[in-house]
């Protein structure tokens, strides 16, 4: 099986896998990263989002061979070297913006991407930015509050 060297959370990681393997499977299984979740494998729900060069992108249909030198950041990579949470992660904890939490990864990723582009989003901008992320528990209202809180401290 061919080898691929990936730039993940600031480190170079080499994995041996079939080239058509989606990035999600490489992250979760070859690199034991829990952040991105398998939700649909169809790029419809957002649970598997990672940041690719800072942009929130679903990883479940993206083959590992197409990644190249792109910088990949997962939920784990948002935490700084002193184990301090990113402001968005911190805000999710403060607002208790989760029930089962399975979709949380994608919400955090989409929110980080949004705040990088628009540091002071209003309600409508937050809803628009998160529209690709599904949640079944109905924690949306709390997530919107968390993103607003993060924007204030960003």
């Amino acid at each position: 099986m061919p080898e691929f060297t990936l730039d993940i959370n600031g480190a170079q990681k080499t994995v041996e896998t079939e080239p058509d393997t989606p990035l999600l499977y490489v992250l979760r299984n070859d690199l034991a990263i829990n952040g991105p979740k398998f939700g649909c494998g169809l790029s419809q729900c957002g649970a598997c989002m990672v940041l690719l060069d800072g942009r929130a992108t679903t990883s479940c249909m993206l083959s590992v061979s197409s990644i190249g030198n792109t910088e990949i950041t997962t939920l784990e990579g948002l935490v700084d070297d002193n184990a301090k949470l990113h402001v968005v992660q911190e805000a999710f904890v403060k607002e208790q913006a989760a029930q089962c939490g399975y979709c949380l990864n994608g919400m955090v990723m989409a929110a980080v991407d949004l705040l990088n582009k628009n540091p002071r989003p209003d309600d409508a901008a937050i809803r628009e930015a998160l529209q690709f992320n599904l949640c079944r528990c109905g924690t949306h209202a709390r997530v919107v509050k968390a993103v607003k809180r993060a924007a204030k401290t960003h």
Binding site: G35, L75, Q89, F92, L104, V108
Partner: peptide, 12 residues
């Protein structure tokens, strides 16, 4: 457990 979730710890 919400902090564990945001850190990507093993939960599920």
């Amino acid at each position: 457990d919400i902090e564990k979730m945001v850190r990507g710890e093993q939960v599920y």
